[in-house]
Simulated assay, not measured.
Amino acid sequence: MSKIIMTKQYFKELAAFNEWANTLACGWIDQLTDEQWNRTVVSSFTSIRDTVLHMISAENAWVERFQKRSEVRWLQTAFEGSKAAHVALWKQTSAAFQTFIEGFDEALLYTPLDFKRQNGEAHSIPYYQLFAHVVNHATYHRGQLVTLLRQVGFTGVQSTDLMGFYRLAQQRTESSSE
């Protein structure tokens, strides 16, 4: 595989997109009844709550790996918080990912991070690939979340597509230059 040229700016944009899209999703979650939040609706996970908790758990685990924490918490096995606590934790985790990217040394993008998966398998993958994975993983599950929300009768969703994020950024730039 030929070397792909990546920049910190690109990942800053992706992290900002991820936080924006997750914040939109948190707004939807805030509007759900507890029954909708916990209702069995099968996709990759058995409910909206379980899907959201998986997303938070994965993003948090990556942030902790990036920070070289010796023990990575897998929140999915232990977190029992309320819906509001899930939303707060999701916003906090997305902000932590964005903060990590903003402070990351661009010279290290191609440096592999040694880590272990939850099952103990050891891996070594360049940061740029892991950063892309974190955003892609969240995008994948946000798509599932939209379907799950519609299945429980919530229709107040909107696009969390990357192009939508870029269009909004362009509109803000154009209106600030007027």
Results as ranks from 00 to 15, higher is better:
49 R>S: 09
23 T>L: 12
135 V>C: 08
119 N>G: 04
57 S>A: 11
1 M>L: 11
174 E>M: 14
83 K>Y: 04
148 L>C: 02
115 F>P: 06
105 D>I: 00
131 F>W: 14
6 M>F: 07
105 D>S: 15
168 L>E: 11
165 F>V: 03
121 E>T: 12
166 Y>W: 07
103 G>F: 12
37 W>E: 02
35 E>V: 08
138 A>H: 05
98 Q>I: 00
92 Q>S: 13
33 T>Y: 10
67 Q>P: 01
109 L>D: 01
110 Y>E: 15
151 Q>V: 00
30 D>K: 13
65 R>K: 13
20 W>L: 07
129 Q>M: 06
74 W>H: 13
6 M>V: 15
159 S>L: 09
159 S>P: 11
128 Y>M: 06
55 M>N: 09
58 A>W: 12
155 T>Q: 10
24 L>G: 01
111 T>M: 01
95 A>W: 09
164 G>E: 03
152 V>H: 11
81 G>T: 11
127 Y>A: 05
77 T>P: 00
52 V>T: 11
7 T>F: 13
12 K>Y: 01
106 E>R: 14
77 T>L: 06
39 R>W: 00
74 W>C: 02
77 T>C: 01
88 A>P: 02
71 E>M: 04
81 G>W: 10
45 F>W: 12
138 A>E: 04
119 N>E: 04
116 K>G: 06
119 N>R: 10
87 V>S: 05
50 D>R: 15
63 V>L: 09
178 E>N: 06
81 G>H: 02
128 Y>C: 08
45 F>T: 08
70 S>P: 11
130 L>N: 13
80 E>G: 11
99 T>A: 15
13 E>K: 15
45 F>I: 12
75 L>F: 12
47 S>C: 04
20 W>H: 12
148 L>D: 15
136 N>T: 15
47 S>F: 00
120 G>Q: 04
150 R>A: 12
38 N>D: 07
147 T>R: 03
148 L>T: 03
39 R>A: 10
54 H>Q: 13
113 L>D: 07
16 A>Q: 07
178 E>V: 14
64 E>V: 06
33 T>P: 02
77 T>G: 04
45 F>L: 12
125 I>C: 05
6 M>H: 08
117 R>S: 01
74 W>T: 06
99 T>H: 06
127 Y>Q: 02
34 D>F: 03
43 S>E: 05
149 L>P: 02
175 S>A: 11
97 F>N: 02
155 T>K: 05
177 S>R: 11
162 L>N: 09
122 A>K: 10
114 D>N: 12
122 A>F: 14
26 C>I: 01
119 N>Q: 03
32 L>H: 03
177 S>I: 05
35 E>N: 06
52 V>H: 01
83 K>G: 06
162 L>E: 08
25 A>P: 00
28 W>V: 07
75 L>V: 09
48 I>Y: 00
166 Y>N: 06
173 T>D: 02
135 V>F: 07
66 F>A: 04
20 W>F: 07
2 S>A: 07
47 S>I: 00
111 T>C: 02
171 Q>D: 04
98 Q>A: 14
172 R>W: 09
59 E>V: 10
92 Q>M: 05
165 F>D: 02
39 R>C: 01
